[in-house]
Simulated assay, not measured.
Amino acid sequence: MHAVVKGFRGFAAYMGSLMGADAYRKYLDHFTATGHPGPAMTEREFWRDRTDRQDNNPQGRCC
């Protein structure tokens, strides 16, 4: 049973990655690694900025 749960969690993490659910974590990792001055965007600010950029610069996407 443990293997099934572990497999499901792995699949869920993979699907979340495909959908961009881990984008804020990746942003924070990049922000910290590159040593930007000042505070990082909050999660709310990050998603608002990302949505605005996608709306202003539409690219080919499924939806």
Rank of each mutant, 00 (worst) to 15 (best):
F46Y: 14
A40E: 09
D49V: 11
R50I: 00
M1T: 07
V5C: 08
L28N: 08
T51S: 08
H30W: 09
Q59W: 04
R50S: 07
H2T: 13
E43H: 01
D55T: 04
R61W: 10
H30Y: 10
Y24D: 08
A12F: 05
G16L: 04
D49F: 10
T51D: 12
D49I: 03
G35M: 03
A21F: 15
N56T: 03
Y14C: 01
V4N: 13
G16E: 10
G20V: 03
M41F: 02
P37M: 01
V5T: 07
F11Q: 14
T32R: 13
G16A: 13
E43A: 07
A21G: 05
Y27A: 04
V4G: 04
F31Q: 01
T34C: 04
A33F: 01
H2F: 03
K26Y: 00
H36D: 09
G60R: 08
R25N: 07
S17E: 09
Y14T: 06
Y14R: 08
E43P: 06
A33C: 03
R25G: 09
M41G: 02
Q59L: 14
V5P: 00
T42S: 14
Y14K: 12
F31R: 06
P58D: 02
T34K: 12
M15D: 11
D55K: 15
R9P: 00
V4D: 13
A33S: 07
D29I: 02
R61D: 12
F46W: 03
Y14N: 04
P58R: 03
H36L: 10
H36F: 09
D29H: 06
R53L: 06
A13W: 05
T51N: 04
F31G: 01
R61E: 10
M41P: 01
C63S: 11
G35P: 09
K26D: 05
G35N: 07
P37R: 14
M41K: 03
V4P: 06
A23L: 10
Y24K: 01
M19H: 14
A3V: 05
V4H: 14
D55I: 02
T42K: 05
Q59T: 09
K6S: 09
F8Y: 12
G20H: 05
M1C: 07
K26V: 00
A12I: 09
G60K: 00
S17Y: 11
Y14G: 03
D29S: 04
F31H: 07
F46G: 00
T32C: 02
F31L: 01
T42L: 00
Q59K: 10
Y27L: 02
R44K: 13
R53M: 07
A3L: 08
Y27R: 00
Q54L: 11
L28V: 05
